[in-house]
Design a protein around this nucleic acid. Structure first.
Lengths: 226, 226
DNA sequence: CGCCCTTTTGAACACCGTCAATCTCCGTGG
DNA sequence: CCACGGAGATTGACGGTGTTCAAAAGGGCG
């Protein structure tokens, strides 16, 4: 019962989101795959598992009655996502890039029996999540559009950027709309600010899904201006 | 070593923030007091304890290098505050109203030895905190000033409002500036919107530290408009 | 009473959202 | 192979919401 088959839950046709069984390394193995956009869980779902991202990118979203969206976080490899509140998920989670995840039973957090090392890791991840959310609040509440976008690119570049000559390339599997909903802005503002940064030679835009950071120093400076 | 004496840590003169020893109910007893504004911990402090608020109100704050503030949360009785990340506090915490707290050793979260019931409660609180922060992000990122302020009053009224005839009185121990920093706005916007709500007979302002909710239905409607 | 801090109110501005048109990129089908 | 269609992205013009700057009013405490 350690394996959640996302496809079965939400779509029998499968795709490319792979769920790994909860096992000790190094015996983890991919199990199934669903396509981009396949959901791991919805708001209100019984929270049977928390998910450890191995590869790919997840999107954690909360939606208001009136349809407004807030992207809470993007889940990159190493992130653990889907912490329950009162036994339920309070966000939506789907894959924006072909992803492998390990489904850990939510009980692993509580149970004293069970792997204590895993419990410790999950607890650390939860505490880290609180801190990350506080950072995000700071950004949403107190940064300008330029600062938000500079921070976003700076952080992403640090986490998943790959060197390309002297520069750093950052893949953006999410749409402009995702970024906007993550930063509390609109797609137009994202687009305009990207163009500004390009004009200032801070970044280069290969195509819409890929940014090359030319001046990480300027991004950093812009992300928390005087 | 279960008692943190906040006065000793930050000011020998004491005041009215009371720290209770970590004990099983019903033997909890107040120990010390510090004045409003006394700090429980600062950003970067070693996180020896998490704090359970018994009475009073705490303020959890994060500050940027350039001085901008984000109030992460207000800690009311029942709240547990100060979850560590990598052994450190990543926020400031002080009292904005005479407060009694219980200091639980941070290890209570991790240790398998120790009160399992307490560990369970702290874990629940941490998970709840994640959810609350996600809500807050939604508000910061996707609500207008009026919606933010209506939500704020609505939630506060539900949690700590006291009936006054047919209406509900809400004490506001925090300043306009605190509310602004909590909602990602300015004091002027808070003030103006309060005045608007008063003109619309949604609230009445006794004095600056106290609001009477006349139309909770309108507050609720305003807090998440179409 | 007088000082200082907080709050309120006003006026002008700026940033960002809204609306709309155009462009690019892909996948699909004729 | 090209035409077509649709979704996402970009750009422009404009307007509104909320900030900024400034001044006055209120309140607490010596």
């Amino acid at each position: 019962m350690y394996v959640t088959n996302i496809s079965e839950l939400h779509d029998p046709l499968a795709g490319n989101l792979i769920t790994l069984p909860e096992q000790k390394l190094p015996t983890r193995q991919p199990v199934r795959a669903t396509r981009t956009g396949r959901y791991l869980f919805h708001e209100g779902d019984d929270a049977a598992y928390v998910y450890e991202v191995i590869t790919g990118v997840l999107r954690l979203t909360r939606v208001m009655e009136n349809g407004r969206r807030q992207v809470i976080a993007f889940g990159y490899p190493g992130d653990i996502i889907g912490f329950p509140n009162e036994g339920c998920h309070n966000t939506e989670c789907d894959a924006i890039a072909c992803a492998e995840v390990i489904a850990h039973p939510s009980e692993s957090l509580k149970n004293d029996q069970g792997d204590p090392e895993l419990r410790q890791r999950l607890l650390q991840a939860a505490l880290c999540e609180i801190s990350a959310m506080q950072d995000h609040c700071m950004m949403l509440g107190r940064k300008s559009a330029r600062e938000k976008i500079a921070s976003f690119l700076s952080v992403l570049s640090g986490r998943v950027g790959v060197p390309i000559g002297a520069y750093t390339e950052v893949k953006l599997p999410m749409t402009r709309s995702d970024i906007a909903d993550f930063l509390g802005l609109t797609t137009e503002t994202i687009s305009r600010t990207f163009s500004q940064f390009r004009a200032a030679r801070i970044i280069a835009l290969e195509d819409t899904k890929s940014v090359v950071v030319l001046r990480p120093d300027m991004l950093l400076a812009l992300s928390e201006q005087k």
